[in-house]
Simulated assay, not measured.
Amino acid sequence: MMLVIIGMAIVTMVPRVLPAFVVDRWTFPDWVSRWLNAIPYAALGALIFPGITTVIEGKPHIGLLAGGVAIALAFFRAHTIVTVLAAIGTVYILTIL
């Protein structure tokens, strides 16, 4: 049993540690670099969007409006704290109304 746990720990650790040592030495084609740079944004979108639509049960439009405010502020390069606070404030204001 302990051997299985150690094996699972090694298998989990290798993909997390290996890139730190190997990726800096590899040179990727330009299209691969662009694709790899887009992954964090795609993952962030996949994690955030479900939360936006379920911020208040039965009222997805409130989350979508707050998300729109955050997108607009981010587009105009507002500070991250300002963007987050504006989205939270939008949800708060729309919840009161």
Rank of each mutant, 00 (worst) to 15 (best):
M1I: 13
M1F: 15
M1T: 15
M2S: 14
L3T: 14
L3C: 05
L3M: 09
I5S: 15
I5K: 15
G7C: 13
G7S: 13
A9L: 14
M13A: 15
M13P: 06
R16Q: 14
V17E: 07
V17A: 10
V17H: 04
P19W: 00
P19N: 02
A20I: 08
F21H: 07
V23D: 00
V23C: 00
V23P: 00
V23I: 02
D24C: 01
D24E: 04
R25G: 00
W26N: 00
W26G: 00
T27P: 00
T27Y: 00
F28Y: 08
F28N: 01
D30S: 05
D30L: 02
W31M: 07
W31C: 05
V32P: 04
V32Y: 04
S33Q: 02
S33G: 03
S33R: 02
R34C: 14
W35H: 11
W35M: 14
W35A: 14
L36V: 04
N37Q: 05
A38N: 04
I39Y: 10
P40F: 15
P40Q: 15
Y41W: 03
Y41T: 03
Y41Q: 02
A42L: 10
A43N: 03
A43M: 11
L44W: 11
G45K: 11
G45I: 11
A46C: 10
A46T: 14
L47Q: 02
I48Q: 11
F49V: 11
F49D: 07
F49I: 14
P50K: 05
P50A: 10
P50C: 13
G51W: 08
G51D: 08
I52V: 06
T54V: 12
T54F: 09
T54I: 06
T54M: 12
V55G: 10
V55Y: 12
I56N: 02
G58A: 06
K59C: 01
K59E: 07
K59I: 01
P60I: 06
P60G: 03
P60Y: 08
H61F: 08
H61G: 00
H61C: 00
I62S: 06
L65Q: 01
A66P: 03
A66M: 04
G67R: 01
G67S: 02
G67W: 01
G68R: 01
V69G: 03
V69W: 04
V69Y: 06
A70R: 08
A70K: 14
A70Q: 09
I71S: 13
I71K: 04
I71G: 09
I71L: 07
A72V: 09
L73A: 07
L73V: 12
L73N: 05
L73Y: 11
A74W: 05
A74Q: 10
A74K: 07
F75D: 11
F76E: 03
R77S: 05
H79I: 07
T80H: 15
T80A: 15
I81D: 15
I81G: 15
T83F: 12
T83M: 13
T83L: 10
V84I: 15
L85I: 13
L85P: 07
A86H: 13
A87H: 12
A87W: 03
I88N: 08
G89V: 01
V91G: 04
Y92D: 09
Y92V: 10
Y92K: 04
I93V: 14
I93Y: 13
L94G: 02
L94N: 05
L94D: 03
T95S: 08
T95W: 08
T95D: 12
T95N: 07
I96Q: 13
I96E: 06
L97A: 06
